[in-house]
Amino acid sequence: MNGEGNSGPVFADPITADILLSVNGDERPITVDTRETLLDTLREHLDLIGAKKGCDHGQCGACTVLVDGRRVKSCLTLTVTVDDREITTVEGLAVDGALHPMQAAFVERDAFQCGYCTPGQLCSAVAMVREVADGWPSAVTADVSGPAALDDDEIRERMSGNLCRCGAYVNIVAAIKQVGS
C-alpha cells in the first residue's frame, strides 16, 4: 500500500554529499542532502540554533549569518555550496566569553523584545557597519559616487532585510549607531 493513492510527485532517493563545514572556527565534517539549506544544517545537525527560521523565503532576515565575513540569508544558501567558506553565526560573535560590541550595545540600548529576530539583526548589523566603513553606497546615499555616513536613514535602509515584528527598530538603530560611530 506504500505510496499508493499518493497524488504527490514521486521522488528518487535523496542525494547526499560529504563536506567539511567551517563554522565559528570549528571544522565540522558532515554528510548533507544536496537540498539542505545552511539554516537547516546549522539548526538540525550542528546544534547551532542561534540563526532562526522566520519566513524561510529570504524576506525576514532572521536566518542571517556571515559567509566569508559577508551577511547572507542562510535559508537561501544550499549547504553543499559553502563547504570551504568561513561561516560565522551569532554564536561566533562573542570572543572568549566577552560579548561582541554589537551584542553589548543591543543589551544596553534594549534593542529587542521577544528576541527571535535578534541573532539575525546582530549578524546583519556587524557586517553592515563594515560595509559602510568600506564605502559601499546605499539607496539613500545622496551622492552614489561618494562615501556614506552612518546616520539613522542609512542604518534603516541598510537594515531593511531584517524585520522585527515587535517593532524594536528605534532601539536597534540606536544600538547600531552607537557601535558604528
Partner: peptide, 22 residues
C-alpha cells in the same frame, strides 16, 4: 559609481543587503 550612477543606484535600490551579497 562614477561613470554610470544610474547603474549603481539601481542595484542598491533592489532587494536587501544580504540578498545583494549573494
Amino acid at each position: 559609481r562614477r561613470r554610470y550612477p544610474m547603474l549603481a543606484q539601481s542595484v542598491v535600490a533592489g532587494a536587501s543587503g544580504q540578498i545583494r551579497n549573494m
